[in-house]
């Protein structure tokens, strides 16, 4: 197995062990904010999809009510990142952690926006005369498969952030084709809405929701890229995915 750039140190140690222990606490606090944001976004996504599939108007309102929480947490994350930079002038892995967590906060904030967008589609669908009937059973299944795929990616990305675990990040990269397939399959069905008895307005709302879900999955992938950046010091954005996965697997991740 190839050593990471910090041989002898486990990923979980990355934020700890400073001579100035306050530094450890401040980095841990920053990461804690990000993980809390992530948990909120997963919850919001599940609730928003349930609102669409089950026509749960109340759930949709709840998602929209809670949306600002994620935004406020992203402000807290920025403030904490600034504080760490000002106080400690981080270098090496610490610098990568602060930069990456700041970017991850932005990814999660956007993912939270997508969950709210899905909730708004649920409310659109619930409008009188806009096809308030439940989705066909098999369409619900396809939608839930996409939801599960996305939430699983997001949860896994948060686990990866918890330990800066490259192996988990690789699993997320590997699941991208499944996400794309599930999203493509849904898109195709909505474009042929008449088959499922959908009126055009329903098809548009569902298509918008599916697209937003797919984008949340993309945000999870972007978070995984930041995990690799922290752990290995390599910026892997825009790298060919197949080659990247193969290289990382080859190195034992």
């Amino acid at each position: 197995m190839t050593e990471p750039s910090h041989p002898g140190k486990t990923p979980a140690d990355l934020t700890a062990g400073h001579t100035v222990r306050r530094y450890d606490r401040e980095l841990a606090k920053l990461r804690g904010i990000i993980l809390t944001m992530g948990d909120h976004v997963v919850e919001q996504t599940r609730a928003a999809v349930a609102a669409v599939v089950e026509r749960e108007e109340t759930q949709a309102f709840r998602v929209l009510d809670r949306e600002p929480q994620v935004d406020y947490l992203s402000l807290d994350a920025d403030e904490e990142a600034f504080r760490v930079i000002i106080r400690h002038q981080p270098t090496a892995v610490d610098l990568r952690i602060v930069l990456a967590l700041s970017k991850i906060a932005a990814e999660l904030e956007r993912a939270g926006d997508k969950a709210a967008r899905i909730a708004r589609q649920a409310l659109e669908l619930a409008q009188p005369g806009r096809g308030a009937d439940l989705l066909a059973e098999d369409l619900q299944v396809v939608f839930r498969i996409l939801d599960d795929e996305v939430c699983c990616m997001l949860e896994r990305s948060l686990h990866a952030v918890r330990d800066f675990d490259v192996a988990q990040a690789v699993e997320i990269f590997e699941s991208e084709p499944e996400l794309q397939d599930a999203a493509a399959s849904l898109r195709q069905r909505f474009c042929q809405g008449s088959q499922d008895g959908l009126i055009p307005h329903q098809s548009v709302c569902l298509l918008t929701s599916a697209h937003a879900l797919e984008r949340i999955g993309n945000h999870a992938s972007n978070i995984a890229e930041q995990v690799v950046y922290v752990a290995l010091g390599q910026d892997v954005r825009y790298r060919n995915r197949e080659i990247l996965i193969e290289t990382l697997r080859h190195h034992g991740y």
Partner: peptide, 19 residues
């Protein structure tokens, strides 16, 4: 050196984990 040092001793020193 200051963004991605290769040796643990270097990393520990510049990130304040030394000693």
């Amino acid at each position: 050196i200051f963004t991605n040092p290769k040796h643990k001793l270097t990393e520990d020193y510049i990130t304040g984990r030394f000693g």
